[in-house]
């Protein structure tokens, strides 16, 4: 029953499960907590960046239960095993994406990054091909320290979509 694309991430206390087949990219997780859930980073879930309580709060808001969580003490033997063998490289492989003929979806997040999902290719500023991926988020505020990807800085600088006529 387990899908090879499914992923799990732990901070030692809880484990967060990501089930891509259920993910409709409602973007709730990264709008709420980009420090932990950042599609522009690999692995895209970083459990060390927020307290357990906050992670649980955000995971509980996932509308499709593509993200769910469990206390580590409640993990089944199978889940423990999967945690030891997790291979994040698979997360980057576009071949794991079903329905590759669909046009790539580009979503402009309000006061946030450009969220991209689908079958696409990225050429970097030095004309080099960047790592293939099935989803990512590009910086739109101009201040990320992980260009061209979003690193959550837009929140710190209060980036807004409002037009700035004078470019200031």
């Amino acid at each position: 029953m387990t899908d090879p694309r499914d992923r799990q991430y732990t901070n030692g206390e809880i484990t967060v499960f990501w089930i891509p087949s259920k993910c409709i990219h409602a973007t709730t997780c990264f709008r709420e907590l980009i420090e932990v859930f950042n599609p522009g980073r690999r692995p895209w879930v970083n459990m060390e960046e927020a307290p357990t309580r906050r992670i649980i709060e955000v995971v509980n808001k996932c509308p499709t239960q593509a993200l769910v969580w469990k206390y580590n003490k409640d993990l089944t033997e199978e889940e423990r095993k999967a945690l030891r063998e997790v291979d994040h490289r698979l997360e980057e492989n576009p071949k794991t994406l079903s329905g590759t003929n669909a046009p790539t979806s580009i979503r402009i997040m309000k006061d946030g990054p450009i969220f991209v999902e689908g079958n696409f290719k990225i050429i970097g500023a030095e004309n080099q091909e960047l790592k293939p991926t099935i989803m990512t988020s590009f910086c739109r505020c101009g201040s990320s320290r992980n260009m061209p990807y979003c690193d959550g800085t837009h929140r710190k600088i209060d980036f807004t979509d409002q037009s700035t006529e004078n470019g200031e």
Binding site: P103, K121, M147
Partner: peptide, 13 residues
């Protein structure tokens, strides 16, 4: 057949 994103140095995407 794939969408292509090109990061333009000091410029747009």
């Amino acid at each position: 057949e794939k969408a292509l994103f090109q990061v333009i140095t000091g410029g747009p995407l």
